[in-house]
Write a protein that binds this DNA or RNA. Structure first.
Length: 419
DNA sequence: TCTGGGGTCCTAGGACCC
DNA sequence: TCTGGGGTCCTAGGACCC
């Protein structure tokens, strides 16, 4: 059956969430600010109409906002996460196949539906009624074209918030109304490179030679071209795969120069990251720590420090991780800088359940038992550990041996930290 | 003394997304 | 004084292995 995707996108999501709980905000220009009230991260239509840009720093626009009667809200991510869940659960009533793409977007498989337009209009009305959030729907045979359709649904007042691009004629007409950077996967840098090759519009990109595009830009851009032609390359991903990295970071409201203060911040971020990991059933075998000075202050000395710390054993234990993170910080801390931002990254994530499973099954499997014994022996004798060892069954014995010989997973940090 | 090809893994950097 | 916080994928180059 021919593929047909719908992209459902919440309009001005954070601003709309604020309105759900503050009805007087309806019809007024509303902006939502980032952490520390740094910059604008969401705007109602009325705020967009006033020319307020995404990412505008609040401190530069404060007075102007006041004069214009713009209502300013600090962000509340717990609220937005909760509202997102309500929207997604509502959408699940409208299709058996749903991909939650981001906090405010979902792709639906509408392939085989008798009347996708009518279905989408009903969906839109229902989401609004049940959650108070307005959404737009774009329908097309590829995800990239569904994005295009969605954008035009938002742009066209007479669309009723739903637009379908099924025929080639409609697709071409739609692409003529957009800029290169409106296309999913094309931002400023790639657009500039495309223009340099004489490809100035989405339609020109669609009609470019995929082989040439692949040679000049790689497979990702080649897929964009094919998707614009209606050839579906990106499929619906219903089951979100496990996270590969988890980050916890923050900009500071004011510069940090004191090491004790920085240690406290890093410890806080690490415990938050550990919490996230446990909630997702993950453990980490190596973490990163980074600190940055303020990149907007060109007159100041700049410093970007980062350090990766491998752990002897994969864990989501907050105390162990904090010790490791502080060790990493001690390696990159430089006095006399004004720090603006810091954070931790958990890399090399694994499902804790899988590791426990491997250990659990060893009793039934002499080969695996031997492997685990060997691993244990190596760990005890050399103080080297490896998540790969623990995930035995994935690795053959020779691999284990070569890992051990190359010392790839050895870590002095582990000893230093006594993790 | 000189000489080869195929492969993996890791890292850093670049680009994108919301 | 004041400019967010998450993520993903691809590529190129070097180390190392057989």
């Amino acid at each position: 059956m021919a593929p047909l995707f719908a992209l459902v996108d919440c309009n001005n999501f954070y601003a709309s969430c604020e309105r759900v709980f503050q009805p007087p905000l309806r019809g007024k220009p509303v902006v939502v600010l980032s952490n520390n009230d740094g910059c604008v991260i969401a705007r109602s239509n009325e705020a967009k109409a006033l020319g307020i840009e995404m990412g505008a720093p609040w401190h530069l626009h404060r007075e102007q906002f006041q004069k214009q009667g713009v209502i300013v809200r600090s962000s509340n991510y717990t609220l937005y996460g909760d509202m997102s869940g309500r929207v997604m659960r509502t959408l699940a009533n409208f299709t058996p196949e749903l991909e939650v793409y981001s906090i405010d977007e979902a792709f639906l498989n509408l392939s085989g539906f008798a009347d996708p337009m009518a279905h989408s209009r009903l969906l839109r009305a229902t989401v609004l009624q049940w959650t108070g959030i307005p959404v737009s729907v774009g329908i097309a045979p590829t995800k990239t074209l569904a994005k295009v359709a969605n954008r035009l649904a938002k742009k066209s007042p007479d669309s009723g918030g739903v637009m379908a691009l099924v025929s080639e004629v409609d697709q071409v007409a739609a692409l003529q109304r957009l800029e290169l950077t409106d296309i999913w996967g094309v931002a400023n840098r790639l657009a500039a490179r495309l223009v340099a090759l004489g490809i100035r519009t989405p339609l020109a990109l669609r009609d470019a030679d995929p082989k040439m595009i692949r040679a000049s830009f790689g497979v990702v851009m080649e897929r964009v071209v094919l998707e614009l032609r209606g050839q579906s390359c990106l499929s619906l991903e219903e089951h979100s795969p496990d996270k590969k990295t988890i980050i916890a970071s923050r900009s500071f409201g004011r510069p940090v120069t004191d090491e004790a203060e920085m240690r406290e911040a890093v410890a806080t971020y690490m415990s938050r990251a550990a919490e996230k990991m446990r909630r997702q059933g993950l453990v980490t075998a190596s973490i990163g720590v980074f600190v940055n000075t303020n990149r907007f202050r060109g007159q100041d000395a700049q410093y970007y420090g980062s350090q990766t710390v491998r752990l002897g054993i994969a864990t989501a234990d907050t105390a162990k991780l904090i010790r490791a993170a502080l060790y990493g910080l001690s390696r990159i801390w430089r006095p006399r800088f004004s720090y603006k931002k810091a954070g931790v990254i958990c890399l090399d994530l694994h499902q804790a359940a899988k590791l426990q499973g491997a250990l659990f099954h060893q009793a039934d499997d002499p080969g695996r038992l031997e492997l685990m014994r060997l691993m244990d022996e190596l760990n005890r004798r050399y103080g080297r550990g490896s998540i790969a060892f623990a995930a035995a069954g994935v690795k053959k014995e020779w691999a284990l041996r070569s890992e051990y010989l190359s010392g790839r997973y050895s870590t002095n940090a582990g000893e230093l930290l006594r993790v």
